[in-house]
Design a protein around this nucleic acid. Structure first.
Lengths: 120, 120
DNA sequence: GTTTGACTTCGAGTGCGCTCTAAGGCGCAA
DNA sequence: TTGCGCCTTAGAGCGCACTCGAAGTCAAAC
């Protein structure tokens, strides 16, 4: 029924090493095991991994992700706390995008400059 | 005339340690020295540092920046190579922005979800 | 004249996020 | 029954980009 760590790795884009590491540090809570002690990942596990990957790719530090994961484990009464945490993070993501957008413009100008020099 | 490492640090946003480090690894070429051997940064040095900071903040690895700095030192005959290098990098930056934009949307939905739960 | 403080060099240390290694278990195929 | 392949664990190692420490120089302040 569940999937092996290799399948979870393929679907999540995280290495098997990383999946075990995430579990060890508490980002993922005790994945199910099958008869021979092998991990068995469920669809909800995968969705959670995908969300974690979003947090990571937006630059959230692992420690903050652990904090969020801990809140999630505590259930619905932490909804408001989680929301605030994400709102703060969202601001950082917006700032990142606007920084990158500015940087991109500088790159554009530099490339234009080189093009102008080459065509003269 | 030039500015001290502290002034350069303040203006560039990089620590004095980092400025020396960048020089050591060849990102900045032999900054001028005053009578007592202290570094003396010029305006062109600062502009270069600002550009380097753009490359860094867009995620270019130090090694690639060194390569670019080396090409720059070789003069105008490397314009085309530098342009191509920046064009490749620009694509990565665009990809980053689009990734972040997608991530931001996921965050928005999650926050909306929490808001909905709280208001029920 | 000595103390302060900003600078110098070089090499070592740090923090982060993995990433890998070693040693071992289990189930199946030849 | 021996090998293969995938899994397990705990802990060590790595790559990157700094960041810091130690030891020393020098100019100005007291």
């Amino acid at each position: 029924m569940g999937m092996t760590i290799q399948e979870a790795s393929r679907k999540s884009g995280l290495s098997a090493h990383t999946l075990r590491y995430y579990e060890r540090i508490g980002l993922i809570h005790a994945v199910d095991r099958n008869m021979n002690g092998h991990r068995s990942y469920t669809e909800p596990d995968l969705s959670w991994l995908d969300f974690l990957t979003r947090l990571r790719s937006t630059g959230m530090p692992i420690a903050d992700m652990c904090r969020y994961a801990e809140l999630r484990r505590q259930g619905p009464e932490t909804f408001a706390t989680r929301r605030r945490l994400l709102e703060v993070h969202r601001e950082r993501v917006r700032a990142q995008i606007s920084q990158l957008t500015g940087d991109l413009e500088v790159l554009d100008h530099k490339i234009d400059f080189y093009n102008a020099q080459e065509n003269e």
